[in-house]
């Protein structure tokens, strides 16, 4: 079966109306195959959260389409949407906010079953809850506690358990580990990797931490100001990034090795992200790009294949090796 699980085409999400809407997501296309993990990287304000919310139907799409397993997400409503929810679940960023503090864990875990009668018969809720808790590394007695009794890492495990209640085929992880401490973050990353193997889950893994994305993803997609500016298999994108923004992003990540201090080639970008309500003409990165020429202001570069690394698609006029430094 070669049909992708999720196929997103020309999806846009604009906020506000009038002449200058904020183009949070602008004409984005990508696919996720069954069982595949796609990492989505970008800094705050790049539109990754809006993209996630649009896919999860927490906000309407302005235009374009997103098809999950044959069902058009952007147009689904009523019964169809309710069924669609079972196939697509989410792990939110903030484990302190995403669990209702007034509800006990057993109620939190079984909430999705209450909303989808027929998923799991009520008599088996307790049994299934315990199974889920154990599968994310918690214990049966945790079912009778409240969220406030758990640490951040444990809450994120609960968030993951909840996301798995309806046996989804696609798990959207919206910065699932960025609120966690390093020592615990590794636990959750490993847990997600294990669950993914065991359940053949497809994942859209959104994060700003490139190192984490490198550890979990098969393919990676880089977003800047509402656009996908580079995408490709993990090996290609991390070993031979062609887009200047991707290069800058990677060189900005501090390496935990003091010996490299001052010896590493670092690209420190000038300035800040332009306003998405009024993005630069042509290439949106040109205002901060050291390679920008007049063509960048006139023509918007499309995603085109690179010869330097297999499967790499880059949206840049100057991405070819001869022009790199």
């Amino acid at each position: 079966m070669n049909q992708p699980l999720l196929k997103v085409e020309n999806l846009s999400r604009h906020f506000g109306s009038g002449a200058t809407p904020v183009r949070a997501v602008d004409d984005v296309s990508f696919e996720i195959a069954r069982g595949e993990t796609l990492g989505l990287v970008g800094e705050s304000g790049c539109g990754k959260t809006s993209l996630v919310r649009t896919l999860l139907k927490l906000g309407p799409a302005t235009s374009g389409s997103a098809v999950l397993d044959g069902v058009e997400i952007t147009k689904a409503s009523g019964r169809e949407l309710h069924e669609l929810r079972r196939k697509m679940q989410v792990v939110f960023q903030d484990p302190y906010q995403s669990l209702n503090p007034r509800m006990r864990i057993d109620r939190l875990i079984s909430e999705p079953w209450a909303l989808h009668p027929g998923a799991v018969p009520k008599a088996r809720w307790r049994e299934e809850t315990v199974k889920l808790l154990e599968s994310v590394g918690l214990r049966a007695e945790h079912a009778d506690r409240y969220p406030s009794e758990f640490s951040g890492g444990q809450r994120q495990r609960l968030g993951i358990a909840r996301a798995l209640t309806l046996n989804p085929t696609l798990l959207v992880c919206d910065e699932p580990v960025s609120a966690l401490d390093v020592s615990v973050q590794a636990q959750v990353v490993n847990l997600l990797a294990r669950l993914r193997r065991e359940r053949n889950l497809a994942m859209l893994f959104v994060a700003h931490d490139l190192a984490v994305v490198r550890h979990v993803s098969d393919r990676v997609m880089v977003m800047y100001l509402g656009k996908i500016i580079e995408t490709g298999p993990k090996q290609s994108i991390f070993s031979a990034p062609a887009h200047p923004y991707t290069q800058a992003l990677m060189s900005a990540v501090p390496t935990p090795d003091p010996r490299l201090r001052g010896h590493r080639k670092r690209i420190v970008l000038e300035g800040d992200l332009p306003s998405p309500a009024n993005p630069p003409s042509g290439c949106r990165f040109r205002t901060r790009c050291w390679k920008a020429t007049s063509i960048c202001a006139d023509q918007e570069p499309g995603l085109t294949a690179r010869t330097t690394a297999p499967g790499l698609l880059t949206a840049c006029h100057h991405a070819d090796p001869e022009t790199t430094r």
């Binding site: 679940q89 995403s98 669990l99 209702n100 909430e111 209640t165």
Partner: peptide, 25 residues
């Protein structure tokens, strides 16, 4: 709050969200 979004992703309608999440809060 994020937990209301979570309930919506699970397919909770307005009546459910008002009853289980908003009123108790």
């Amino acid at each position: 709050r994020l937990f209301v979004d979570a309930a919506r992703v699970f397919g909770g309608g307005p009546a459910w969200i008002l009853r289980t999440h908003i009123l108790p809060s």
